[in-house]
């Protein structure tokens, strides 16, 4: 079982020239919280989603590295933030991409994909490492349903050890 088995290729992606307003409309239409962003050639650039917008709305002093850890004292600032949101709608999403997470490649292992899913929410983008183009996304759901199929397959497997495994054991001189 590899990344290819769980890869979803028919996906919604955003173009880097889209505005925040357009991108938010697309995400809302498809009930997504984030989507991968590509340039005109399909090269993956990062993710854009609701969290990117939230981040852009807060003052830089809060979201930057080494910024304020806790802002309970920020009272009465919501009208300003609402205005900022309207202003941001016409800006290009390319300024606000989330690049915290390096994308998976077609060669990545599935346990690695699962490990990242534990730490980050949403589906994970997968790129072709040679062309850097977006190949698709993997989601926790697609991994889990493939595991169901895998379990059915192995539960039907005969008790005897198969030829591939025997070959490997012989190669490492476990058996002769």
């Amino acid at each position: 079982m590899s990344i290819q088995d769980v890869l979803m290729t028919n996906i919604i992606s955003l173009n880097k020239n889209a505005t925040i307003g357009e991108a938010m409309a697309t995400l809302k239409q498809y009930h997504l919280s984030s989507a991968p962003v590509t340039d005109d050639n399909g090269v993956y650039l990062g993710k854009f989603g609701i969290r990117c917008l939230l981040r852009a709305l807060l003052p830089a002093a809060v979201t930057m590295e080494g910024g304020l850890g806790h802002v309970d004292f920020l009272l009465g600032t919501m009208p300003g933030i609402a205005k900022k949101m309207k202003k941001l709608e016409s800006q290009k999403i390319s300024e606000f991409l989330d690049n915290d997470l390096a994308p998976l490649t077609l060669e990545s292992s599935l346990p690695e994909a699962m490990r990242l899913m534990c730490a980050y929410s949403g589906s994970l983008p997968v790129i072709d490492s040679a062309t850097k183009k977006l190949a698709g996304v993997v989601s926790a759901r697609s991994v889990l349903s493939n595991l169901e199929i895998l379990y059915t397959a192995i539960s039907l497997r005969p008790d005897e050890i198969n030829e591939d495994d025997l070959e490997l054991l012989r190669k490492h001189k476990v058996i002769s």
């Binding site: 850890g69 806790h70 309970d72 004292f73 920020l74 009272l75 009465g76 009208p79 300003g80």
Partner: peptide, 13 residues
């Protein structure tokens, strides 16, 4: 006015 709404005591964690 917005700045004066900040609550200094709430900044104490």
């Amino acid at each position: 006015a917005h700045l004066l709404r900040y609550n200094p005591v709430a900044a104490l964690e």
